[in-house]
Nucleic acid binder design. Structure first.
Length: 419
RNA sequence: GUGGAUGUAGUUCAAUGGCAGAGCACCGGAUUGUGGUUCCGGCUGUUGGGGGUUCGAGUCCCCUCAUCCACCCCA
């Protein structure tokens, strides 16, 4: 019996692991600079949480959730996204009852039963950020600026930011009425998917990739023309604040976010050169979600991005994340007695925080030298018969080839000085 | 969920239906205890899995699994 990794999942292997840690650390550091604090929610929640928040008509809920019953028959789901659990926690901890703003971020795995392809997995890692407690456009800009600064500071250049406003429920309703009125006479010309979208989620008609549908979508009324006074002013202010933050963006009235809870500002960061899975991150306001989930009405805005796509984009742009740890010292021992002498020495160095590698079992001196070279360690320590009798070790600089003999009890203090 | 391409050594790839190979990597050697370059030698395979056609299948057919691409969806 041979066991296989589940479809659409992957192991983060040692030679990749440091890249993940690096990306996560950079996200945490930036969050600290913006005053955001980390929250970790469970991997699974009641299925109903996602059904109510994301919208039961969404594909994520309808087709992609990993659902299961526990031993008492309660229905749970592996979380397909991060916002709903954070909102649940926000309400459960009564943060909605205070007047203060709440700034949270998270990283962790999400689960969707999708057909895997490059940049799309069944277990995938997201970084995300949620802001609660103000509808001020300042915070729209802050959240978007955070995302933009994170991605650009990593070295991404071939990305662009698209923003839109989907308005409040009132504007949205009027817009959908207008949209349906526009599409009604074209119904027979649409593809099968779009005929279904017309009934289920008319906004999705706008980003169909079938060319003939795209032509029709170009003529369709724009969401932006159906914003009421308040929503339009808000959107203009958001753009103004983004300019003040020196963030470049383009307005794309056809951005449609997949989850039902979004209102007002919606945005995406697109990578120019990844194939079909080119949305690096996306987000928007959800001013009505907290209330809808049973909390006190609380405006909020957030985003989420995928680490796998981020990694692909960084690789595509040739950004090097190779910060693989290189040992400071590679230790070589010849013979059993020397191996024993090596033991206390390398542990002293390691306990001082030096990275020390060795493989004293290797067959020959030459082989150990080779290994020292492959490790790229700056120095190598050599102990053999001669050194044992003189209670010294040889310290060799692998770059210059120079070597010197050092008394065994002085080795650690000497290395502390030069490293 | 729909359509298509692919699957051979650790890895990148070869092999008209006729003995499964090469580069890289790895391991060893080139006078005793000194790496990188060079030279010599060595190891590695249920050809993803199962079935079928055939004297004979990596190659043709069917099923299955996986990866990739597009749709879809979205991060």
């Amino acid at each position: 019996m041979k066991y296989n990794i589940p479809r659409g999942t992957y192991d983060i292997l040692p030679n990749q692991s440091h890249k993940w840690q690096y990306l996560i650390r950079r996200f945490q550091d930036l969050a600290a600079a913006y005053g955001y604090q980390e929250i970790s929610t469970p991997i699974f929640e009641q299925s109903a949480l996602f059904e109510r928040s994301s919208g039961s008509s969404s594909d994520v809920v309808q087709k992609e959730m990993y659902r299961f019953l526990d031993r008492k028959g309660r229905e749970f789901a592996l979380r397909p996204e991060g916002t709903a659990p954070v909102v649940r926690s926000f309400i459960e901890n009564s943060w909605d009852k205070t007047q203060s703003r709440t700034k949270l971020f998270y990283t962790g795995p999400m689960f969707r039963y999708d057909r895997p392809q490059a940049g799309r997995y069944r277990q995938f890692w997201q970084y995300g950020l949620e802001f609660f407690g103000s509808h001020h456009p300042f915070y729209d800009a802050e959240v978007i600026a955070f995302l933009w600064n994170y991605l650009t500071s990593l070295g991404l250049k071939k990305i662009h930011l698209e923003i839109n406003s989907v308005g409040c429920p009132n504007c949205l309703h009027e817009y959908e009425v207008a949209l349906k009125a526009f599409y009604q006479p074209h119904l027979s010309e649409l593809c099968g998917d779009c005929q279904n979208r017309f009934e289920v989620n008319p906004k999705r008609l706008l980003d169909c990739k079938v060319p003939s549908c795209g032509e029709i979508a170009k003529q369709a009324p724009s969401q932006l023309d159906y914003l009421d006074e308040e929503c339009r002013t808000h959107f203009e202010q958001v753009q103004h604040y983004l300019q003040l933050a020196n963030i470049e963006f383009m307005v794309n009235p056809r951005i449609v976010r997949g989850l039902d809870y979004y209102s007002h500002t919606a945005f995406e960061v697109i990578f120019d050169g990844l194939g079909a899975q080119n949305t690096l991150a996306g987000g928007g306001r959800y001013n009505y979600l907290v209330e809808q989930m049973g909390g006190k009405p609380t405006p909020a805005i957030g985003f989420a991005g995928g680490f796998e796509r981020l990694l692909l984009a960084l690789e595509e742009e040739g950004v090097s994340l190779d910060v693989d740890p290189i040992p400071d010292v590679y230790a070589i021992a010849m013979g059993e007695e020397a191996q024993k002498a090596l033991m206390p020495l390398i542990f002293v160095l390691r306990n001082q925080g030096k990275k020390v590698d060795c493989d004293p079992e290797k067959s020959s001196f030459k082989a150990q030298m080779k290994a020292a070279n492959n490790s790229q360690a700056r120095f190598c320590l050599i102990i053999g018969e001669d050194e044992l009798s003189s209670k010294s070790v040889i310290l060799k600089d692998m770059e210059s080839g120079e070597q010197q003999s050092i008394a065994m009890d002085k080795v650690s203090s000497h290395l502390l000085q030069i490293l």
